[in-house]
Amino acid sequence: MPAFRIALAVLSLAFVGGCASPLVTLSARPSDAVASAEDVARGAELFPFRASDGTWGFVTADGEVAVPAQFDGASEFHEGRATVGVGGRVGAIDPSGRIVVEPVYDEVLAFADGRARVRVGTGRDRRYGFVAPDGQEVVAPTLPEATVFRSGLSVVRLREGRLTLVQKILIQIGGGSPSDRTVAIDPNGRVVLELPHDEVKVFSEGLAAFRPEKGRRWGYLTREGEVAIEPQFEGPALAFTGGLARVGQGGEIGYVNPTGDFVIEPQFEAAGPFSEGLAAVRVDGQWGYIDSTGVMVVEPRFERAGAFSESLAAVRLGGAWGYVDTEGGVVIEPAYRSARPFRHGLAVVFRGGRPLLVDSAGDLVGPDR
């Protein structure tokens, strides 16, 4: 950075904070709140819909309105809770439509492991925290970085103590801060693991991809912080699903097992996670599907391809989305702008900007269909 820009940064920081300023810290309040089994079961059978006036509600698999349209936006239920928009902010409801997480956040992600990640602010001012199913802030939104919970852990970035002027300058010009710590916390916000690495991704199936300090290659850590797979992959290094993780080596993607051995050698331009024994892969610009041994079971011919759910996968062909079965046969003709996975016999598809529900035969279900 040119000297005059550094000088300007020093000057501006001196005016706004002097020689030291407080840093964000981990503020936690343990909670034993859980969503009831009834809420989880009821929520799994509800689907979001948008009414003709633009508001959102929820319907059953039979198309009956369960929660009248009243929200600015709505997501699917996860663990008995669904994210909704109210007055430009975001909260969450239970299956009866009762607000349980007050709409005071800029973002509320789906619940996982009994916690939803919340965000306030945007850009460099964004901060993350976690709420319980009853809406209590278990971790106040003060964290500059935080992954969603998986395997009972979230990887978060902490800054503790007070920033010196030099540290503030480093942050201003894009550098790190010596006060930064990467740790893993449990669902009650307790630090259970120090992670002295440059980067650690979300835990999945008990493992998390990591890159050591000043290292260029990726490996995997256990929930105890031990190295399970030595850093050896050029990247990307993605989460484990179905016992396999996608990793990049030599400019191509393959799949490794939890010991780091390639089960499917790097050979694909891009690849998706395994689901129901199949994974989408791209070869020469087209997508098809392989099985867990790497055999191509659906030859590449799609423009895009999603994961299988209830034996159907969304694919794009001719610029539109439809669904195919596990042998690649078209079950629902491509006719939609986008399409989501099937759940309980129904899937959300979009025609223009309007969400619709279709069943496995491709018939529209629900109000205003």
Rank of each mutant, 00 (worst) to 15 (best):
G225R: 07
W287C: 02
D284F: 10
Y220R: 01
E226L: 10
F302R: 08
F308C: 14
G288Y: 15
F233Q: 06
V297R: 05
V315Q: 09
G215V: 08
V281N: 02
A208L: 09
L238S: 10
V281L: 04
L317I: 12
G254T: 00
G272Y: 03
G319Y: 05
E303S: 13
T259F: 05
P258A: 15
G288V: 15
Y289M: 00
T259Q: 07
A209F: 05
R304P: 10
G260C: 13
G294K: 07
E265C: 12
R301G: 07
E252Q: 08
F308I: 13
R301L: 04
V315D: 07
G219S: 07
G248F: 02
V281E: 02
E303H: 13
Y289S: 00
G285H: 02
F302A: 08
V227T: 13
F233P: 03
M296Q: 11
T293S: 15
G248S: 07
P231I: 12
E234W: 03
S309R: 09
V281P: 02
V315W: 09
G306D: 06
D261A: 13
E310T: 12
V281H: 03
R282D: 08
G272I: 01
G215T: 09
E310I: 12
G248A: 06
L278F: 12
G254K: 00
V315Y: 07
V256H: 01
A313M: 00
S311C: 12
G243I: 12
T293Q: 10
G219H: 06
A279Y: 00
F240I: 10
E303T: 11
G215C: 11
A279M: 01
E224A: 11
D261S: 15
I253F: 05
G243F: 13
V281D: 02
G248D: 05
Y220F: 04
R223C: 08
I290T: 02
I229C: 04
S311D: 14
R217W: 04
T241Q: 14
Q286I: 07
Y255I: 07
W287R: 03
A280K: 07
R211F: 11
P236N: 12
A314M: 14
P273W: 11
I264T: 00
Y220H: 01
T241C: 15
A237F: 06
K214R: 08
